[in-house]
Design a binder for these strands. Structure first.
Lengths: 389, 389
DNA sequence: TTGTAAGCGTTATCAG
DNA sequence: CTGATAACGCTTACAA
């Protein structure tokens, strides 16, 4: 209700001077500045961002498009983005759960004029293409996009390598019959994790048996149900690699209800390393993905694009996850120690970091086509996701 | 880059006509409309929301201020808001993790011109006051505010009653020495849950022993640590009421590491009923809070305020949570059945819903001062938070 | 039914 | 250093 004009009038200066004070865009006499500030604070003035972005054609805001908002993984991504954005004095416009491509694109378009750029997580190919089209008029960073997508910046998690690493670990522990608890069909992460699973089996000389690939959709409930299916298999699998932690938790809950013990009767592993994974009974062996950092990197990538629109697009950052061995895989209590929370203590990694992806193309395409791979080195997660006493 | 003027020129009409077509604000000849739509889609035009909100002084967006973004509780709130907002064609601007009151207010102010209203969760008194001041110039809905706050709309969870109900349940199971695992000092939810704990003990004729009130901060790690403290107490407590599920999980993890069994050696209960609670070993007895619905209601309340600014403020909705009895409290396997996920099956509630709050003031203030209490009836949560097969 | 033109609250350009 | 003033892209009386 109170505009720059009111402030100017009260301070007996022009609106231009008020604007200069607030933006530091040109020198203003000390006296004028004093009067402006006094006037502004008396009137409780704050510039109208809509008007500002209309003239500057910069909104200092960014859009975030997510497929959903369920669970810790997504909220950590937003947290990472939000934190980085706040530091850069950016605002964050979120939108999630789009039923189809049309709705997704509509959401992106509705943001026009409100945002300077977009971070989108689009786990299916059709929509990813559509969003990627927008990148021509608009700075866009894609999170975990399908490998086929090209032409805009991308930040992904090395799902394939992570999955490979867990399964190799299970094989090394002596498990031969290893089931996969899959994510939803068509989901990119789910597909990549399955690819890693199969590849690891192949490399180990084990058969890839379709019967062992159980259906799931990333929810605990689907994990719970899949366990029943797993127990019907003959011979019964000795281990399960669940494509995310939530399903692993549901799966373990079901095994417990059936009177089976983990890992003695069946080993279980997950993916993501959500915060509670280490506190479960038994603590869950899983692949640590730093979702917070994923969000943070996405923001930085976008910010880079905004600052220098002419920089090459098609940059691709890959976050390499880390295998975290706990007790659910039957590795024994060797890592029990990791559970004692101590200040600045990092989760112990009993396992070597996953191998770097093969240099050459594996099948027509390389593992990460067009990847410039800023950071491919395995990093021990340096960022604790919450204060530990 | 493409404006309403470009569309108008190409369609050989005035900008006013284009505007009318897009807003349906006045009749336009079929022929003109056809030309406008063709032109717009050819040019891939979409109205600039900043400009639009400048003229209409309506942004069709709302701000969400959260103390943090950790964990399922917060992400569910955002999910609820986002979903309700999308249905009403509103956009959502989020901001979280403000270090202090000043930063919080700055974030709210920075949204000026961008949003039509604000939903804020402000769990400490000082900041809540500050945000409440904004309500005079601005539609504001507060989530779970301190009881002392008055003068703007509020939506809260009946923390006190929920806590009371769990503790009463523990007493009924025969536990006499019941510890409290507290939330962070100064946090409103934590305080109310403690109040409920103490009141239940009093009502049961049990002593309120400060030694039994363990420090915590809502993180799993603090729960893990608190268990060590609990085990040092003599005599050892027979049960623990953790002020949220994450701490309960950390606590149980610690007990397991110490070789104790839940519930035989110690009963454990939580608060919130996060999605995985039912899949834990043992499944966690807790208080179900429908965070999604909390967000949804907050949006509706705000929308109501926007539609009719002159309606009475100081409306206060209270969501009454439900006690969910599972196995961690030692109630026996009576509810094991609730764990078999079936379509449309609601979690069994072996316990009566918490009693309605006492009608009269309890101690100077009533339980919910100024509450108009639209919905105070206990509701079985009708909304599954995720698809269950 | 359509067009003209005056704003909405800022910033940016240009003279002073 | 400061002040007019013309945009920015859109909506909305008011006229036609």
């Amino acid at each position: 209700v109170v505009t720059i004009r009111d402030v100017a009038r009260r301070a007996r200066v022009s609106t231009a001077t008020v604007s200069r004070v607030f933006n530091g865009t040109a020198r203003v006499s000390a006296e004028a500045e004093r009067r402006v500030r006094a006037s502004a604070s008396r009137l409780d003035y704050w510039p109208n961002s809509a008007a500002r972005s209309l003239t500057t054609s910069r909104s200092h805001a960014l859009g975030v498009l997510l497929p959903d908002l369920f669970g810790e993984f997504f909220s950590e991504i937003i947290r990472g983005i939000d934190h980085a954005a706040r530091t850069a004095r950016f605002q964050v416009l979120v939108s999630s759960s789009h039923a189809d491509t049309a709705e997704l694109v509509a959401a992106a378009r509705a943001m026009r004029g409100r945002i300077d750029g977009l971070i989108a997580m689009v786990p299916d190919c059709g929509s990813a293409d559509a969003v990627c089209q927008l990148a021509r008029q608009f700075p866009v960073v894609l999170l975990n996009p399908p490998a086929t997508i090209d032409g805009c910046r991308k930040v992904s998690v090395a799902n394939f390598e992570g999955a490979q690493a867990v399964v190799h670990h299970l094989v090394r522990l002596g498990h031969r019959r290893i089931a996969l608890l899959q994510g939803p069909p068509g989901n990119v992460d789910a597909d990549e994790r399955r690819r890693g699973y199969r590849e690891a089996l192949r490399e180990s000389g084990l058969p890839v048996d379709p019967q062992l690939e159980l259906a799931g959709d990333f929810t605990e409930a689907s994990g719970y149900q899949a366990a029943a299916a797993a127990l019907r298999l003959r011979p019964r699998p000795q281990a399960v690699f669940a494509a995310n932690d939530y399903m692993a938790i549901g799966f373990m809950g079901s095994l417990r209800d059936a009177g089976l013990r983990v890992p003695q009767d069946m080993a279980v592993t997950g993916f993501d390393d959500i915060a509670i994974a280490r506190y479960l009974s038994p603590p869950l062996t899983t692949v640590h993905v730093d979702a917070y950092q994923l969000g943070e990197r996405a923001f930085r990538s976008l910010a880079g694009l905004l600052d220098a629109p002419r920089t090459r697009r098609r940059e691709h950052e890959v976050l390499v996850p880390t295998l975290v061995v706990r007790r659910s895989c039957g590795a024994g209590p060797a890592n029990a120690e990791a559970l004692r929370p101590r200040r600045r203590r990092i989760v112990a990694h009993a396992e070597a970091p996953p191998p770097a992806p093969p240099p050459g193309p594996a099948l027509g395409n390389g593992v990460h086509p067009g990847a410039s791979v800023s950071k491919r080195r395995t990093r021990i997660p340096s960022l604790r996701r919450r204060l530990e006493p």
